[in-house]
Nucleic acid binder design. Sequence first.
DNA 1: CGCTGTCTTGAAAGGACTCAACGCCGGTGG
DNA 2: CCACCGGCGTTGAGTCCTTTCAAGACAGCG
Lengths: 241, 241
Amino acid sequence: MANPLIRKLEQHGPLSEEERHVLEQITFRTVIYQPREEIVPEGSSPTHSSLILSGFAIRHNHSPDGKRQITAFHVPGDFADLHSFLLKPLDDGVAALTTCKVANVPHSDLKEITKNYPYLTRVLWLSTLIDGAVHRVWMTTLGRMEARERLAHFLCELRDRLQSVGLMRDDSYDMPITQEQLGDAFGMSTVHVNRVLQELRADDLITSSGKTLIINDLEGLQRQAQYTPDYLHINQKVERD
Amino acid sequence: MANPLIRKLEQHGPLSEEERHVLEQITFRTVIYQPREEIVPEGSSPTHSSLILSGFAIRHNHSPDGKRQITAFHVPGDFADLHSFLLKPLDDGVAALTTCKVANVPHSDLKEITKNYPYLTRVLWLSTLIDGAVHRVWMTTLGRMEARERLAHFLCELRDRLQSVGLMRDDSYDMPITQEQLGDAFGMSTVHVNRVLQELRADDLITSSGKTLIINDLEGLQRQAQYTPDYLHINQKVERD
DNA sequence: CGCTGTCTTGAAAGGACTCAACGCCGGTGG
DNA sequence: CCACCGGCGTTGAGTCCTTTCAAGACAGCG
């Protein structure tokens, strides 16, 4: 199977043989994490960044009084904490949702890339900018949409992101996320997540059994969520010269 | 007066004479915007990024049904849409809150920097990462804190950011932000913003008359907001070699 | 002086939360 | 093979934070 990082970055434009070689070199060190295990502790200053090769992970912030906000869900191919390259100590932590295979990319290697591979640098920079764009949309759903729209919006987002890495099956995908975690991500109590999901099921927009989510009415779901996928910038091109 | 961009980036480490010269060169083209004027339209694909030299500006997203989310307030020295360098079309727009003097930095110049000035590249990259860190904290306040804490938190944040660019006077600062805008930023109705501010005034945490905000009890405000300034990464250093 | 944008206030309605309890299911151990 | 257990999903009822709607006060500006 192709290297997930190369695959990810090539959506933004073709890579040279040399660039691919560099990316191969920096992603060979892998580690396995178990579900619930902490991949990068909140507030730490890691010396490498974690690329998710397989499995689901989250990023989260805790407020001083212990409340948790999940700031991102990560799927295979995502660089969960690329920002820790320059941003230390990290304000958020990364944790495994399922068993995760992770490549540790040393920050020293990233620094070398900024010195010798300007195009790769821009593409990596872009991937952190897309992260920010997703944050802004989440802020918009948190601040200005209702719970039902927020959840629907996320289900649409996850669909498109999984599709872009080949993890969609027809109209369904794996979503190993508990209702408590959805609540922590979208500013809702677990109880309310439960009720909203029931509504979405009752309206025949989705079916969810266990960890599998089936989208019965994609258009309806997108309409209710006012969803437009532009902000994911999938296939956003980066100029080479 | 020193170039605000140079001043901004030097907080992350000293710059060489040559680097300072480059930064001077890319920031000489300035434009004045009037209050309420659009600086960068939402959804556009600008060919330059806007550095705020003086005045206040916001960044905002609109949902399809017209609701607005303000995703950032910008003060002098901020690169309001540095992310538009690589992220096009832009998902958010920039607008002036007050009269703003803005430097237009051509993206072609930024690209040259990524080719020839790796350290500058990393520092600029960092500044977009800090932007993302602030987004995450806002997500946390939006998702997991109450209206009163959210507003208090922002007042603390603004204080520290203005102080870092020398715009604090003792315990007060200019805040040319309407209650409607605060509502659009922190997920509240204008009416509720008004009531919460009244509470903060009644508890003698702040005094606000017109556009001036006075902090009467900084510790109390920070305590209520559960505020810690780490996420702003002021003076975060970037390794040079 | 009148206009417009902003701030303020009151009352009623509603979305979401908390608390508490129960059912379900897969894993573990005897 | 079955009982126990913990994690997760589900329900009901009461409460509260926040919104909406409507209207009036205020202030800066031309």
